[in-house]
Amino acid sequence: MPERLTVDAAQVRRLVAGQFPQWADLPVEPVANGGWDNRTFHLGGEMLVRLPSASEYALAVEKEHRWLPRLAARLPLPIPVPLAKGEPGAGYPFSWSIYRWLAGEPASVGRIADPVGFAVDLAGFVTALQGVDPAGGPRPGKHNWFRGGTVRTYEGQFEDALEALDGHIDAGLAREIWKTALDARWDGVDRWFHGDLAQGNLLLQDGRLAAVIDFGTCGVGDPACDLAVAWTLLTGDGRRVFRELLPVDDAMWARGRGWALWKTMATCAFSLDETDEPALDARRALSEILAG
């Protein structure tokens, strides 16, 4: 795992005051559940400061500033658009960003008011994103942990998780799903993808999908990674509608299931003895994946 930095509010205040004096008097407060890849802080009531927590995550900053404004103009839901880019300073070593705050609460199975309606809205967003011209877009690489490439990248993690979950899941079925995903061929047509359509990156207002955030893993390539959400968050009925509305063939669906399997098994293996909400959500998702 990357070695992550600790950043506090006083350090962020110094960064803002030194580089953006027009905002120097605004209060700075940590965002509750501010994410893993970035340290996130409220800046006043309408903005946020986003600082990569490790050098690997800092690779996404330039990409986000170049591409998010272009994507935002083509998408049916709000996404983060950078307002300003900061430079290293005040003891912080990476470039960082200021964004407009997007209101909403993280999606979860219990918070979604209409599971099928949510699936319809999410399918519309994914379809629109895949329809954006991919020319010149960022290819899979270290900047996005190779999203958009083959899930085979994570075969070692899959095997480690399978070993850790021995006796807790049907290992034969998991291997069958994994092999099917690896064997399912991509048509080679580059499309845009988000790369991490997970609960914390899908915001709700009044139980409906209201915004999609955290595009650090976005890029162009095979968009199958975005289908993992069909098992990790959607209900069975929602999953069926989601698939019906997407431009997806059987092979892409199988690859998406493989992405969901790797990510969820890794989470379950890490939280095997835990009983908090994320651990329970991961176990529920794994049951969905194995059931189909």
Rank of each mutant, 00 (worst) to 15 (best):
D8W: 10
A9P: 15
F20Y: 06
A24P: 00
V28S: 10
E29M: 06
S55E: 14
K63L: 14
H65I: 05
L68K: 11
R70Y: 12
A72W: 11
P80C: 07
K85C: 12
K85D: 00
F94W: 13
F94K: 12
S97E: 08
L102G: 04
A103C: 01
E105G: 01
A107D: 04
S108L: 08
A123E: 03
F125V: 13
G131D: 15
G137S: 10
N144T: 03
T150C: 13
G156C: 04
Q157P: 00
A161R: 08
L162F: 07
A174I: 01
V189P: 04
Q199L: 12
N201F: 09
L202P: 08
L203C: 08
A211C: 10
A224R: 10
A228S: 14
A230H: 01
W231D: 12
T232M: 09
D237N: 09
F242K: 10
E244P: 11
L245Q: 11
P247C: 06
D249Y: 03
D249F: 00
D250S: 12
W253Y: 07
G258F: 07
A260N: 11
M265L: 14
C268F: 09
A269I: 02
A269N: 08
S271N: 12
P278K: 05
A279W: 11
A282V: 03
S287M: 03
